[in-house]
């Protein structure tokens, strides 16, 4: 047997469900509610196998009543349970956001810290498979904008498992956002870099620690979720041209690891933010602002560049969607353009 066979690779979906399952085995207060999370195993397979392992009392299919079961998660968490509540597509937040942003996010604050709400909301994000404007958004900036929610946006299986276990053990609301195009589903093409080696035992990854996915001296690409995988492919192309990109995977938006971003930008002097959320008022603007606020401490060689969905709903037709959502070639092109820019 070759040693390669000993490496256990999991898809991000498998890693997430394994993480949830291990926490459910460890802590009987943990349970899952959501649409099609039982027999179906989650539309994006985030709960595959859990019904068989834990039964319908703890893996609870719900009616299509997001307000109902998001509110129920709040009520159950107030009683000391630790619900995981799945919002099938993040796009559906519109039918239940009151429970999330007016209650889940604020009740700890409004109680002066007297009440805790250890709820994990899992939700599918992202496009790239022609599902159009109501099923393809990222929207993590909207959740990160509201104080009181931690926001986790993994790019690969290893991180997803560690961040999921961390999320379940956190006493605060955590929105765990998995991109459909890196879940490793059998019915949707995905970026293979997201399927990687995952230890069988439980482990945690602390929030607020970005990861330097690739070292480079010429420019910094700050990114997250599926765009990390795209950025890695773009960086390979750039390397062939002699441009060494450093890639920062934010991993969590709340809390945000500003230090790692600033350290890298101080080193390279060039910043590109690659984001699949909308351009305006989002992650790319936030990262640019963080750098701008530190210009007395670091030296830029070129203006900051931002690559994101250009403030249009996600279109259906393939050429339109591939244009609107930044692709590998677009990241490489932005990086090349950035390398041509100077401050004078």
């Amino acid at each position: 047997m070759s040693t390669a066979n000993k490496v256990r690779k999991l898809s991000m979906a498998e890693a997430i469900s394994e993480g949830i399952g291990q926490e459910m085995a460890r802590d009987e207060r943990v349970f899952v509610m959501g649409e099609d999370i039982g027999k179906y195993g989650g539309i994006f397979s985030a709960t595959t196998g859990l019904l068989d392992q834990f039964g319908p009392e703890r893996i609870m299919d719900t009616p299509i009543s997001e307000t109902g079961f998001m509110g129920a998660a709040i009520g159950a968490a107030a009683e000391g349970l630790r619900p995981i509540s799945e919002l099938m597509f993040v796009d559906f937040f519109g039918v239940c956001f009151d429970q999330i942003y007016n209650h889940l996010a604020k009740n700890t604050y409004m109680s002066g810290g007297a009440c805790k709400f250890p709820v994990v909301i899992t939700t599918g994000i992202g496009g790239g498979y022609n599902d159009a404007a109501q099923h393809s958004q990222c929207l993590y900036a909207m959740f990160a904008h509201v104080p009181g929610l931690k926001v986790v946006v993994p790019s690969n299986a290893y991180d997803a498992k560690g961040l999921m276990i961390q999320a379940i053990r956190d006493d605060n609301p955590v929105v765990f956002m998995y991109h459909k195009g890196i879940m490793g589903l059998s019915w949707m093409s995905y970026f293979e870099g997201s399927t990687n080696e995952v230890p069988a035992e439980p482990y945690t990854i602390p929030f607020g620690q970005a990861k330097v996915v690739r070292d480079g001296k010429d420019l910094t690409i700050v990114t997250l979720s599926q765009m990390v995988q795209k950025s890695v492919l773009a960086a390979d192309k750039l390397a062939a041209e002699g441009i060494e990109a450093e890639i920062i995977d934010l991993r969590t938006l709340v809390p945000l690891d500003k230090e790692t971003v600033l350290r890298s930008v101080a080193k390279t002097g060039r910043l590109l933010v690659a984001d699949e959320d909308y351009l305006s008022f989002g992650v790319s603007g936030e990262i640019a602002a963080i750098v701008a606020e530190q210009l007395n401490h670091l030296q830029l060689k070129a203006p900051v560049r931002r690559l994101a969905v250009p403030d249009v709903p996600i279109p259906f037709s393939r050429p339109l969607e591939q244009f609107a959502i930044p692709q590998v070639d677009a990241i490489a092109a932005e990086a090349r353009a950035l390398m041509q820019l100077t401050l004078d």
Binding site: G68, G71, P83, N107
Partner: peptide, 30 residues
């Protein structure tokens, strides 16, 4: 919010009903 007597309230009309369901679900589970 007074967790000692399990009381809470909300300024959003209708929002409390699902939360009461959650508390009841917890009672059942416990």
């Amino acid at each position: 919010f007074d967790p000692a007597v399990k009381f809470s309230c909300s300024g959003i009309v209708g929002a409390g009903a699902p939360q009461a369901c959650g508390a009841a679900l917890a009672a059942k589970k416990l």
